[in-house]
Structure formats: C-alpha cells, structure tokens
Design a protein around this nucleic acid. Structure first.
Lengths: 121, 121
DNA sequence: TCGACGTATGAACAGTTGTTCATACGTCGA
DNA sequence: TCGACGTATGAACAACTGTTCATACGTCGA
C-alpha cells in the first residue's frame, strides 16, 4: 500500500505538513471523486448538456443523444442517485431536468477549459 | 444502437430541436468527458488537492496521499497527458505543480456542491 | 566508478462500468 | 379490458482502469 522509499524521512516535511492541512477531508474528497465519476461518461454528459436547455422526457433524450432507451434510462438512474437530475411523471412520460445549478457551472468551466486547452481560437 | 421506439416521431420535436442547437459539439463533449474521467479517481483528486497548496515532488506526494510511489507516478503521467499538471526536474527529483487555474475552479465548485448536497451545515 | 536514491514504465491481474437483451410495470386510448 | 406505449431494471458480457510487482533509467555522493 505505502511507498517503499521515502518512508518517514520525506523530502519536504514542511510542505507536506502545510499541504495536508489544506486538503479536504477524506469524506469530501471521496464525494468529489464520486461526483466526477458521474460526469465522466459521454452518455451522461450528453444528457446533462441536453437538459441544460430544457426539461425532456426519456424518449426525447434517447432520440436527441442517439442512444437506446434502455441505456438512457440506466444512466438517468445514476444521475438521479447522484441528485444531479430530478424528474416528474406525467402519464406515461417521465420528464427529467437538472436538479442543481452547480452542475451547469462545473460543466461551463470544463467547457472553457477544453476549449482553451485543445481548441484554442 | 438507436432506441427502438420513438424513432422519428419523438414526443417533443421542438424541444429536441432547440436542445440540439444549444449542445456543445461532439468534439467538445468528448473532451469534457475526458477531463472529468481524469478527475474521477480518488488518487488523482488527492494529488490535485495536494498540489493546490504548493509544488511537490513525487516522493512528497506519495507520502502525503498514502499511496505507493509507483501508483502516484502512473497517475501523474495521466495528469500530465491531460495537461493538468506540469513538472520540472531538479537533480533526482521531479517537482509537480498544477498547470491550469481552471482545475482549481472546477474542484472548488465540486467541493461546494458535495458540501451543500451531502454535508449541509 | 559504484551504489543508493528518486522516478518512470511495462506487464499482469482484479475490480469496475456501460451497453444490450429480455422483460416487467404502470398508463392511456379504443 | 386489452393492447400499445413509455419507462425501469436485472443479468450477462465486453471493455476499460488502477494497482502491484519488477525493473530500468538518470543523478548524486563517496
């Protein structure tokens, strides 16, 4: 598990000490990672991008992002569990919408980053 | 691949049309997903969090996040390829630092999100 | 020049994840 | 009430990913 060199006698103890204090707790770190895991799938990113403009039903989403109804439904479940989307049923349809404005912000910054890093104009 | 119902005759054609126009391009969407994939690992998130406070060498990082030197080095490679960290060599040491201020911003918002969503005060 | 050190990396393995397929469930129109 | 529809979900399989282990490489001190 632990590295086999630099055991106790690390190179920059003061820096490590400082960095350790400023780091988020294990729990927060785990939750942040979980959040990014949810965002780290193209199908789910497409769903989130689609829902940025308006509420949509599963059927619309599947058609829009060119994926199967089953795949979309599975991914919506994950988004729901992560509380990134909410939904309401209306007859046979289930309408999904973003549940959190943070996600739009995060997606926005991610878009900025990739545009500047890889698609610089 | 494509859903087997709601084929051409989708439920809300206008909404779909609007949503489609506002969606990022396939390329941007792919790059955004790639970015989140890189962030979607606890070891890498720990590395990024650690580097937020200051530049650190591999040895420091391994000790700080309690992971093996090999694991850290492998993950740093991925972070390097994603241009999220930069490094400089000084003698036998390799010093890593964040390469992009966007990442700190994204991590910041992610932290806010999980704190509000799961650790509400 | 030789050995210890810090770092990088390939191979292999285990664990995880996303899709498809089949099917089940609730709702609505006829 | 029955069939079509929109949606949800379990099982199975393939693809991907992160760690460990072994080892290689360059640098520095003796």
């Amino acid at each position: 598990m632990t590295g086999d060199s630099c055991l106790d006698n690390t190179v920059h103890p003061e820096k490590i000490c400082q960095a350790r204090q400023e780091m988020p707790s294990d729990e927060i770190l785990r939750d942040m990672t979980e959040l990014f895991k949810v965002l780290a799938d193209e199908t789910r990113m497409r769903i989130i991008s689609a829902l940025t403009s308006c509420e949509l039903c599963v059927c619309d989403l599947a058609s829009l992002i060119e994926s199967s109804q089953s795949a979309v439904s599975h991914q919506l479940r994950i988004l729901r569990q992560a509380r990134l989307v909410k939904y309401r049923r209306e007859g046979r349809n289930a309408y999904y919408a973003l549940d959190d404005e943070h996600i739009e912000t995060i997606a926005h910054f991610a878009r900025n980053h990739v545009q500047e890093a890889f698609h610089r104009e």
